[in-house]
Design a protein around this nucleic acid. Sequence first.
DNA 1: GTCTATAAGATGATAGAC
DNA 2: GTCTATCATCTTATAGAC
Lengths: 193, 193
Amino acid sequence: MSTADRILDVAEALCQRRGLEAVSFRDLAAEVGVKSASIHYHFPSKSDLALALAIRYRQRFETVRSEIDRKEQSAEGRLKRFFAILADLYKEPNKVCLVAILAAEAGSISPELAIEVRKFFADNEQWLSSTLTLGVKQKTFTLSTEADCTAKTIFAAVEGAILASRACADSSRLRSVADCVLASLKQGKVAIG
Amino acid sequence: MSTADRILDVAEALCQRRGLEAVSFRDLAAEVGVKSASIHYHFPSKSDLALALAIRYRQRFETVRSEIDRKEQSAEGRLKRFFAILADLYKEPNKVCLVAILAAEAGSISPELAIEVRKFFADNEQWLSSTLTLGVKQKTFTLSTEADCTAKTIFAAVEGAILASRACADSSRLRSVADCVLASLKQGKVAIG
DNA sequence: GTCTATAAGATGATAGAC
DNA sequence: GTCTATCATCTTATAGAC
């Protein structure tokens, strides 16, 4: 494993725990086991580091969504799996979605980073929208508003729940959202089995 | 208007725009029109300032909710008004809910501040839960999960939407959430008029 | 690639005059 | 209450040896 990767791993963990602004090159270097000059060798400025962090995070979610689509054909199964993966990722209420952190600090980040954050939201919402539409086609979901609108709402609820989960030290929140959303999408349906 | 109040006003605006960590006593003092030593006179440490900010913000929301309950008797009307006030408060996609910011930086805030953040979530969620229950009683809402669970989901969606609103420079997100939530709560209902 | 050393500036905070 | 002056510390970042 390369030093650059180890730096990104530690930086991601620190950022998710404390926020980007609270991560210093000194702390980061100490935890990686190198000197801060070495961090600068791999990531010249803090903006470079933050951007690399955001890109990697977004791509990881892209992979997760692709895997879900490959393994699961039903829209309901896909949504359930998405929620389950997120719940597992944030089960320890000590860290928060990296992009939620960046979005909160969006007033003081670089333009390139802001684009990356925006893309993260757009990608996830588009996938959710497609999945909802598929669910309607498969006659398992009933939407109360158009798919795009519902998708935005669901993803907002997910991000908000991850944030609240740590703030309230209550790891059940993501499951609450998952339960509520799924029940709402299936409202009016009668169980077959 | 006292200096302390002016400091809080400016600090709140700066914090909502840039994040708490990115607000310095120097910038704050400059914008208020005093020297940083004066800020320290009113708020000895940065923790004191942050705590005062959070308490004031929470109390303001308390007042808003009380006003809504006083003016409006129907649960649906109350919920609509709540969403409308929030949408108006965050219509300029330049600022974010103060508590969302604090929640994102929760890994590096004082214990007292963390309690305040937690209380903000709890208060709003409890009010939402009561309002949902009232709506069921008034036969205007149908819940797909129990009131507490739905309330947590709705508030998570609200906080997430405010965050996404700025990150995506898309002020329609809070309205999306409001539309989707209200439609979902009234699903299966037939309009009377 | 990693280190030592250091620059140049910002930060929270305090002492003491007015 | 507000100021000037100052402190110790931390910050990002760079130059140059190994």
